[in-house]
Design a protein around this nucleic acid. Sequence first.
DNA 1: CGACCGACTACACAAGTGTGTAGCGTCTTG
DNA 2: CAAGACGCTACACACTTGTGTAGTCGGTCG
Lengths: 228, 228
Amino acid sequence: MTGPEPEDLTARARIRDAALRHFGEHGFDRATIRGIAETAGVSSGLVRHHFGSKQGLREACDDYLLKAVRRLNDEARTHRMPETNPVAASMAALGPYRPYMARALAGGWAAPLFDEMVRMSEEWLAEADQRRPDPPFSDLRARATVTTAMGLSVMVLYQHVSRGLGVDLFTPEGAHLLAVTLLDVYSHPALSPEEAVSLRDALDKISHSSTQEGRGAALRRFEEHHDD
Amino acid sequence: MTGPEPEDLTARARIRDAALRHFGEHGFDRATIRGIAETAGVSSGLVRHHFGSKQGLREACDDYLLKAVRRLNDEARTHRMPETNPVAASMAALGPYRPYMARALAGGWAAPLFDEMVRMSEEWLAEADQRRPDPPFSDLRARATVTTAMGLSVMVLYQHVSRGLGVDLFTPEGAHLLAVTLLDVYSHPALSPEEAVSLRDALDKISHSSTQEGRGAALRRFEEHHDD
DNA sequence: CGACCGACTACACAAGTGTGTAGCGTCTTG
DNA sequence: CAAGACGCTACACACTTGTGTAGTCGGTCG
């Protein structure tokens, strides 16, 4: 039905699937190699045999997910549906992997995955720009990045959004409510084009007189060290 | 600005601040009580003495951050600035706590914090609705939830957005570029109101029959091509 | 057949971590 | 003044976890 049964998969594939589940449910740190091995029905040593280390196992999961996103993107391009946001389409199709993707993206180590989605959004935005009366005054890449992040927000903050909507997002009712809400939000801008232009000009004036200097320095000091 | 309060000089406050930093930088699991104690300049036993357990320490951080958000909201309400998104304002003001907030929200355990921001967005949206020609066709709470999640996305996915924009978000240049991009996105809807209404009607029809068809088909195609 | 290689398992080990316990110094209070 | 409360430290224990090592089994190829 929805794919090959667990018994039909290679042990390596079973381990990867189990890792995708455990990493998604408990996080990378709390998930244990022994637990993953138990779910996959193998010994813990086999996990190390196939993937070298826990880190290697995570990278294998990332690669698998990246390939899945690329495949879905290619499929969507062949029989493309107009008026369809590819980010939302990927979200729906990758539902089972949502917990892992959310943690990977929020943890900041799934850069290729995010960049691939930005690329998809760029194509979508480039088409939308052609149907727009006034030309955009911001970079295409920048808008694709921001809209991608916004589209992924409901995936990353899934639990909060589900609680706010009062229904689980990955049920038919929740998906419908989310879609209707998104339609309303996406069709009713918070600002008029004139307001946006005037505010942009105001921002340009402000940024020319460097007032953000103190705060920027303090934050840079705070963020000077990176994870991993 | 909001300078350090007298109670922040106590060892307990130093421990909490160190925990906010360590939890934000390394995550809750990878952060250690000993490391937090060392940063705070105290013994590891004192952490337990004050907060009971590692979990208690995290809850204290959550409470502190929630109070900070409430305080900022109250301040913004006294001298409120029109045309200002409170979520974005909170983001800027809570910059130093961004790593912790991102992990807390993405981890799903900062429900009161998210709900407080939803409440703030509700007030902001209620005002925006009065300046809108056509009445919204979706629930206020639902729109507030979705817009809150979207506003927080650049905070949660900060590293990816910074990489996509090509500049760190918490520098003056990055903040300016983000602001300009957000103005463009917020002022140019992806859909016209008429398209939104027609699409909503189409969604209603679909949801009355079988909703999961599209997603199930896409997922099936994906798993057919990949069975190892 | 015999050597070999990959899949796979069992077991041990060192390191790290949260937590428990005992104790010391100081300040307040009856 | 005595005594307890509180802030605070030092130390050890039990447990988990990733990783390393040795060995078994089955199929394959020269």
